[in-house]
Design a protein around this nucleic acid. Structure first.
Lengths: 115, 115
DNA sequence: GCCATATGCAACAAAATGGTTGCTAATCTT
DNA sequence: AAGATTAGCAACCATTTTGTTGCATATGGC
């Protein structure tokens, strides 16, 4: 494998890890759940119902935004956040590839045993 | 929604977050990649090729094991680790549900605009 | 039995994370 | 213009994570 290809896959893995890490928190999963319905929401709205402070929620939103899971845009005096399905779909495909690799391994094992 | 149902979904979310967090690290993704081929490997084998020490790799493997992504069994003087596809498949389905929610939201928006 | 190999455990340090509080600035509303 | 709402920034704290080193223990081969 060429150097650039190795670097490219390392960069991809780094990116995947970042998105996984962004989703690796209960509060952030709740935020994703609140936003995956399609409607954008302000920080105050997203804070409502949580026991955490607005600042804590803001920090979590920034983590999600840095991972690309969420986008924000200022609208008047509020910042509205919306879900971006891209990274989540990338992860879905990544997990699918892992599963496939596993299934193929099982297939080879089966062939070995039966053959 | 009943109390127990709310608790159940909260527990599920907690579990998903734990698995996402386990995958949210480059080193651990490499380990998953090394194990998803189907063959079990010892800690020493998994450490080879990494710049990290054996103990660091051991800790990462424990994180993966606690999340259920990987299982270990002692065999003679070595601990052999193997991939468990269960949690990864759960995440795949979870992400699929998030995507579907998003797609349905887009569909409703489209209907609203066109209607 | 001896030696090399493979792992486990504990203590430690540095850095990242998750959360709070206090204060400031911008934007609506009336 | 005044007051209320919404958000940003900075400092700070506690906890967790990530990684190291040193030492102990178990197993396999000669």
């Amino acid at each position: 494998m060429s150097r650039v290809a190795a670097d490219a896959s390392a960069a991809r893995r780094r990116h995947h890890a970042a998105v996984f890490a962004a989703l690796g928190d209960e509060t952030r999963l709740s935020l994703v759940s609140a936003l995956s319905g399609g409607e954008s929401r302000s920080i105050a709205q997203l804070t409502g119902g949580s026991r955490l402070t607005r600042q804590a929620i803001t920090k979590h939103l920034r983590v999600l935004e840095n991972a690309g899971v969420v986008r924000s845009a200022r609208s008047g005096r509020e910042s509205r956040y919306e879900f971006d399905p891209g990274p989540v779909n990338e992860l879905k495909h990544y997990l699918t590839r892992v599963s496939e690799q596993w299934d193929e391994a099982l297939g080879r094992l089966k062939t070995l045993v039966e053959g």
